[in-house]
């Protein structure tokens, strides 16, 4: 135990927490490893890339909003299955999901990312950054791809990825939390479980620090997403209002 919020937990408890979170992750990760392997890593051909590039900006934004929303629904389900999450007050469940669900989508993206070809699984095939040109935010897309590439380079196992996702989601420093201490306890326990798993998997000591650095990268990506959405909404208010998924609008204040 180190610090007020840090609970005294046994190894058995950490094992249990790690197992529950890994199980929740596998049950809710949208695509299983086996399914991803069967996708044969097929890339979009040039004609298909150009087809995406010719789409009107608002159509491509809508398509991406739908894909993000689908992925987020699985993250909500993941959160619900984390031991202790549903014991938090509903305000805090919502605060954590509003702030963290897209971050977890970015973390999970490394499972569907082909580092060699710099391509992500999107709309049925693997897409490079050029597929998203019509969105009009090349800088953000490049940063998202760089993030996925750097996550892949850590070669996290599924259980490590699961615990890191839970750690991100349970961030106790989000604004508007009502029972901050409860969230802190849960995040501390998750961090201890992550450390425990890293030690068990004989990972290098600095991996936890590398993962902590990813937290600030994730925040930056998400705030830039919000900025890009605001800029888009300023030009196409009706498109956002009528064609974007309601959950996306709830989460990102559109």
């Amino acid at each position: 135990s180190n610090g007020d919020a840090s609970p005294a937990v046994s190894m058995a408890e950490l094992d249990h927490q790690a197992q529950i979170i890994s199980k929740s992750h596998l049950e809710t990760c949208q695509y299983l490893r086996e399914e991803l392997q069967q996708m044969s890593w097929e890339n979009f051909v040039q004609d298909e890339v150009e087809n995406y590039q010719r789409k009107p900006r608002e159509v491509m934004w809508q398509l991406c909003a739908v894909k993000i929303t689908e992925a987020i629904q699985y993250v909500v389900e993941f959160a619900k299955r984390i031991d202790g999450f549903m014991d938090l007050c509903q305000n805090d469940q919502i605060v954590l999901l509003k702030a963290g669900s897209l971050e977890v989508v970015f973390v999970r993206m490394c499972r569907m990312f082909d580092s060699q070809n710099n391509a992500v699984y999107f709309d049925g095939k693997f897409a490079g950054p050029d597929v998203f040109r019509a969105l009009g935010c090349d800088d953000l897309i490049a940063s998202v791809f760089d993030f996925a590439k750097s996550m892949c380079s850590l070669h996290l196992s599924e259980d490590e990825l699961a615990l890191f996702s839970a750690f991100v989601l349970l961030s106790a420093d989000r604004s508007w939390l009502q029972e901050k201490l409860q969230v802190e306890k849960l995040q501390q326990k998750t961090q201890l479980a992550l450390q425990h798993v890293l030690q068990k998997n004989q990972r290098e000591d600095e991996l936890l620090n590398k993962l902590r650095c990813k937290v600030s990268a994730l925040r930056s990506l998400c705030s830039r997403h919000t900025e890009k959405l605001s800029a888009f909404r300023a030009v196409y208010p009706d498109i956002v209002g009528t064609r974007f998924p309601p959950l996306y609008k709830e989460l990102f204040g559109a």
């Binding site: 689908e70 629904q73 909500v76 389900e77 509903q90 469940q93 919502i94 999901l97 959950l247 709830e250």
Partner: peptide
């Protein structure tokens, strides 16, 4: 609550990934 209607629903549903 009205502002986060869908999130409330998702949190209260006993959905499985198969249903999503």
């Amino acid at each position: 609550k009205e502002k986060h209607k869908i999130l409330h629903q998702l949190l209260q549903n006993s959905s499985s990934p198969v249903d999503l």
